[in-house]
C-alpha cells in the first residue's frame, strides 16, 4: 500500500483481530444513567452560581461618582470605548500583529459614538428638565475644541477631587459638562438609562452592546469582578463567581495573559489569539506532525492500556 503510515509502519486492520462480546448499547445506556445521576446530584448538592447583573441604577446608587466620571470621560473621549477604534468607531487603530491589522480589516461594523450614544442622546430625552436641556444646548453650540477643553478639564478635576466626589471638585471652566454628567447620573438613578441605551436600536431590547460598553467604561464593574478573582491577570478567564468551577478548559488561553511578553504588551489580545490559533491548528494536525505523531510510543502510557496483548 502506497499510503503513508505516519511514521508508524503498517497498522493492522482492526477487523482482522479476534473479537469479544461488547455491548455498545448497554454501555451507552449505563453511561447515560451515570452521567444523568451525577449531573442531577451535583445540581441538587451544589446548585449553580447566579450573581445578579449590575443594573445601571445599582451602579448609580453604589458608585455615583463613577457614573459621573464615566459620563465626563465619554464626552472627553478618554474612556475605553471612546478611544476604541474598530469595530465601534475610528478613534484608534486598535491592536495589530506587526503589519497585520485584522482589527481594522472589517471596518466599523457596529458604530458607537460614545459621547453621543452613551451620554448626549439619553440626556436629550430629559426635555422637561430645564437645566439639562440648557446644558445640552450650550454643548451643541460650542466648537469641538471648546467641548474637548471643558470635558477634559472636568475629567482631570474629578480625578483630583477627594474620592472623585463631584461635589468636591475644585471650581474651573467646565462649561455644561458637570450638568450633563449629573443628568446622566439622574437618568441612571431613575432606572431609565438602560432602556434608552438598548431600545435605541430596537423596541425589543435584545442588543445590550451600548449599555455594556458604558458599564465597562466605569470602574465599578471591574472592581466587582476583581473581588471575585475574575480579572484577566488573575487567570479570571477560567474562573466563576462564588466558589464554583468555571471554564478550566481555557487554562492555556488564560496562561498566556499571565506571562511576558503578553502580560506587558499593548497588543496582548491579538498576540495571544494568534498563538492560540496556531497551537489549535497544531493540535488538530498532530497525526501529521513528525515527531509529535510518534511521541506516544516513547511515553509508554499505552502499555497500561494494552497490558495483556502487545
Amino acid at each position: 500500500m502506497s499510503r503513508g503510515t505516519g511514521g508508524w509502519g503498517p497498522t493492522p486492520d482492526a477487523h482482522a483481530f479476534p473479537t469479544r462480546r461488547y455491548d455498545l448499547v448497554k454501555e451507552f445506556v449505563i453511561a447515560l444513567a451515570v452521567v444523568s445521576v451525577l449531573s442531577v446530584v451535583a445540581a441538587l448538592v451544589f446548585s449553580s452560581p447566579d450573581e445578579p447583573a449590575i443594573s445601571l441604577q445599582q451602579w448609580a446608587r453604589q458608585a455615583p461618582s463613577d457614573v459621573v466620571a464615566t459620563a465626563a470621560g465619554e464626552l472627553a473621549g478618554t474612556t475605553t470605548s471612546a478611544g476604541y477604534g474598530p469595530p465601534y468607531n475610528t478613534a484608534s487603530e486598535g491592536q495589530s500583529l506587526g503589519p497585520v491589522d485584522l482589527q481594522s480589516l472589517p471596518g466599523v461594523t457596529q458604530p458607537v459614538d460614545p459621547a453621543k450614544d452613551l451620554v448626549l442622546d439619553p440626556v436629550r430625552t430629559l426635555t422637561s428638565d430645564a437645566a439639562s436641556s440648557a446644558a445640552v444646548r450650550v454643548w451643541d453650540a460650542a466648537s469641538a475644541d471648546r467641548q474637548q477643553a471643558w470635558a477634559s478639564a472636568y475629567v482631570d478635576a474629578l480625578a483630583a477631587a477627594p474620592d472623585g466626589d463631584p461635589a468636591k471638585v475644585a471650581s474651573g471652566d467646565y462649561g455644561p459638562v458637570p450638568a450633563i454628567a449629573a443628568a446622566e447620573l439622574r437618568l441612571a438613578e431613575s432606572g431609565s438609562l438602560e432602556g434608552l441605551l438598548t431600545s435605541r436600536t430596537s423596541f425589543f431590547g435584545v442588543d445590550s452592546t451600548k449599555a455594556l460598553l458604558l458599564l465597562a467604561d466605569g470602574t465599578h464593574l471591574e472592581d466587582a469582578a476583581r473581588a471575585q478573582n475574575l480579572g484577566g491577570d488573575q487567570w479570571g478567564i477560567m474562573n466563576e463567581t462564588g466558589n464554583y468551577p468555571g471554564q478550566p478548559w481555557l487554562w492555556l488561553y488564560s496562561l498566556w495573559y499571565q506571562v511576558p511578553p503578553f502580560s506587558t504588551s499593548d497588543n496582548a489580545d491579538i498576540a495571544v489569539w494568534a498563538l492560540m490559533i496556531v497551537l489549535s491548528i497544531g493540535f488538530v494536525c498532530i497525526p501529521w506532525i513528525p515527531g509529535l505523531r510518534t511521541l506516544p510510543k516513547h511515553l509508554g502510557v499505552h502499555r497500561l492500556v494494552w497490558r495483556t496483548r502487545r
Binding site: 452560581p49 472592581d223 471575585q228 478573582n229 466558589n243
Partner: peptide, 12 residues
C-alpha cells in the same frame, strides 16, 4: 462600595 457589590463571597 465593595461591601454592597459583593453579595457572594469569592471562592478560595
Amino acid at each position: 462600595l465593595l461591601a454592597v457589590s459583593q453579595p457572594v463571597p469569592a471562592g478560595p
